[in-house]
Nucleic acid binder design. Structure first.
Lengths: 339, 339
DNA sequence: TTGAAAGCGCTACCAT
DNA sequence: ATGGTAGCGCTTTCAA
C-alpha cells in the first residue's frame, strides 16, 4: 500500500532523483515533467516517508515538551493545559509536530531527555520551569541541543528563555489589593524552591514594603485541597489577612472554598488575586481577579525561538520577557462592592 | 558529537552487526563481547538513532492523538486535558511516545491524519469522538492503518473502539435527579450530531419515560458562556425545570453561574448533575454531582489495544465498554439539604 | 558465534 | 534539466 518515490518515478518514466526534485520544488525541473510527476503523485496519493526523510535530512520536524508532574496531576493544572493547547495551535501553522512526554522529576526526567534528544527523535525541546533543572540543562548545553526554557534561567545568560517578570507580577497583584483598601495582605505560595512562586513572593514583599508591617507568607502544596487546608488555618487566625494573593488560580479556588466554609465574604471581608487568568476565573461569582501571564505570547516566542534555533542555529535575543496584565474582576473590587 | 554503531564497533573491534545484536539483546553474542560492547556504549553515551531505526524497522514508536477543537479551546475542556494527561502517564511505562496535533475539523482534520499516517510519522492513531468522522475512518480502514476510537463507533463493527455507554450514563444521571425528588428534569446537550450528547439525551429520555410528561431538551454550544446564556433563558421560563442534567462539567458551571444570577438556589430550587467528574466538580459549594467516565480506564484500554494492533496486527475484542459511575455531591442532594 | 552486505526511502552531489 | 549514485544509521539476512 505504500508508494515510494521509486514507484512514482517508474510511472512517470523519470528518475527517482527527479521525483525528489519535484517534491522539494526545485525550479530546475521542466514544467511538463513537473506537472506529470505531480499528477501521478496525486493519483497515487503519495506522501514522502518522514522517517527516511529525517534520517537523510537530520530533521525530524518534531519538538518535544516534557511535562514534569506527578501522575494524573496535569489535568488539574490549567497552566499546563493552556500551554499545551497554545503550542499545538501555534505549530498548526508550521511543519512541526509536538511530542509530549511525562516525567516524574528526579533522574527519570533526565532519562526522558536522553530518550528524546540523544536518539534524535526530536529536533529541540521546550522546557518548562522546574526546580532542580541544573543537571539536565548543563547536559543540553554541553551537547549543544537546541532548547528553550519557559521560565526563569536563574541568571544563566547562555540559555534561551522566555519568561514573565514574576517579581513584577507579584508586585502588581499585591499593589492592586492595597489600592483597593485591603490592610492586611498576605500571600500563599507554593513550597519554596519553586522559582515562579519565590519570585512572586519577592514581588509581594517589594509591594508591601513601607505600607504594611507584617509579611504574611504561607506555603502550600500544589492543588486545590492543599490550598484549601492552608486557607482554613490562616483564615481562623486572630488577626487574619483581609487580602490574599494566591500563586495560582486553581489554588485560589481552594481559598474561595475555605472562605465560604467560614462565612467570610469575598470581596467584602477578603480580597483575592491570583495568577494565570485561566478559565477558572469565570467560575466564581463576580469573577476572580488574576494576573494574566499571556501564555499565547509566551508560547509564540518560545516556539519561534526554538524553531529558529533548530533551523539556523543562532538567535540573538537570549532572554525574552513577556508582559503580564492584571485582569480585575469581582474578587478584589472592595470599593465598588462596598458602595 | 553523535556516536553510531560503527564507532562503537571500531572501539570494540567487532563488526557493526555485532553491535546491533548486542543492542537488541541477541542471546547468540558471546558474553565477553557483549560486555565489552555494552561497556563502550556506556562510556561513549551511545543511543541508537531513532530515525534510522524506524526507517529500517518500520516502527516509529510514536502514537498520534489529534485534537479536533477550535483554537485555544483545549485549555477549557477538562475532558481533553484529562485524556492527554492519562495517555502520557500510560505511555510512560512503554517505549511509545505521544504525538499531539490539533485540527480545526472539516478537511483540515483529514490533512492532519494524512500528515501523520501516510508519512509514517506515527505507528497508530487514537481518535476521539467527533461528528463527521465517516470519511476519515473509512480511509484509515481502507489503508489498514491501526487506530482506536475513543467514542461510539456508530454501529460499525469493524472499528476498534472504547467507549462509555453514554445512553446509560444519561439514564443514571436523570434517574438520580428523579430519585432525589426533582419533578421537572431537563437536559442541556451539545448541538445535535455530537454523538456523546445525543446518546446521553437518549438516556435522559429513557429515564423520564412514564415518570414525566414533558421532555425538556435544550442544545447549547460548547463552553461555559454558551451554557450560561442558554440556562439564563430556560431558568426564566414560566415553568422552569427544577433539575437539569448538563452534558459537561464545564458547561454545568455556566448553569451554576446563571442560577446564581437569578437567585435560584442549588440544590434546593435546582438540582444539577453533569458528566466527566473533573476537577471542576470540587469548585462549587457542596460539590457538583457528576458521572465519572473513568478516563484512566478508557485510556488504558485504548492504548493497550492500539499498541497490540500496531505490534501484532490483530485484536479480538473490537468494542470495549468502560463503566461509568455516578459521583454524588451536593448539587443534587435535595433531600439532605431540605432536611 | 561473527562478519559482510543488502537495503529501508530519501536528499544531494556529481556527472552528463 | 536530468540521471546515476552515494550515503544517512540501522536491522536482518546470508555465509562463513
Amino acid at each position: 500500500m505504500k508508494v515510494t518515490q521509486n514507484d512514482i518515478a517508474k510511472f512517470a518514466k523519470v528518475s527517482q532523483a527527479t521525483v525528489s526534485r519535484v517534491l522539494s520544488g526545485d525550479p530546475k525541473v521542466d514544467p511538463d515533467i513537473r506537472d506529470r510527476v505531480l499528477k501521478i503523485m496525486g493519483d497515487k496519493n503519495y506522501r514522502a516517508d518522514s522517517r527516511a526523510r529525517s534520517l537523510r535530512s537530520k530533521k525530524s520536524l518534531l519538538l518535544g515538551l516534557v511535562i514534569n508532574r506527578p501522575s494524573g496531576a496535569l489535568g488539574d493544572d490549567p497552566f499546563f493545559s493552556g500551554l499545551i493547547s497554545e503550542i499545538i495551535d501555534y505549530l498548526r501553522g508550521s511543519h512541526y509536530h509536538l511530542c509530549l512526554d511525562a516525567a516524574n522529576g528526579g533522574n527519570g526526567e533526565a532519562a526522558v531527555y536522553d530518550e528524546l534528544l540523544r536518539t534524535r527523535r526530536v529536533d529541540g525541546l521546550i522546557l518548562v520551569e522546574s526546580e532542580a533543572r541544573d543537571q539536565r540543562i548543563a547536559r543540553l548545553q554541553q551537547d549543544k541541543f537546541p532548547f528553550v526554557l519557559i521560565g526563569n534561567p536563574l541568571g544563566c545568560n547562555e540559555i534561551h528563555s522566555v519568561d514573565n517578570d514574576n517579581v513584577q507580577a507579584g508586585e502588581i497583584a499585591t499593589e492592586h489589593l492595597i489600592s483597593q483598601g485591603y490592610k492586611r495582605v498576605g500571600i500563599i505560595g507554593a513550597r519554596s524552591g519553586v522559582t515562579v512562586s519565590d519570585d512572586r513572593i519577592a514581588g509581594y514583599q517589594k509591594a508591601i514594603r513601607g505600607k504594611q508591617n507584617d509579611h504574611l507568607i504561607w506555603h502550600a502544596d500544589f492543588g486545590l485541597q492543599a490550598a484549601q487546608a492552608t486557607a482554613r488555618v490562616l483564615l481562623r487566625l486572630p488577626n487574619r489577612p483581609d487580602g490574599i494573593v494566591v500563586i495560582d488560580d486553581y489554588m485560589a479556588m481552594g481559598v474561595v472554598a475555605a472562605a465560604r466554609e467560614l462565612g467570610i465574604r469575598i470581596p467584602q471581608d477578603l480580597g483575592l488575586v491570583s495568577f494565570n487568568d485561566s478559565a477558572l476565573c469565570g467560575l466564581i461569582d463576580g469573577g476572580l481577579t488574576s494576573v494574566s501571564m499571556n501564555i499565547p505570547g509566551l508560547v509564540r516566542i518560545a516556539c519561534s525561538t526554538l524553531i529558529r534555533l533548530v533551523e539556523h542555529d543562532e538567535v540573538l535575543v537570549k532572554r525574552a520577557i513577556e508582559g503580564c496584565a492584571l485582569k480585575i474582576r469581582g474578587s478584589s473590587m472592595r470599593e465598588v462592592n462596598l458602595a
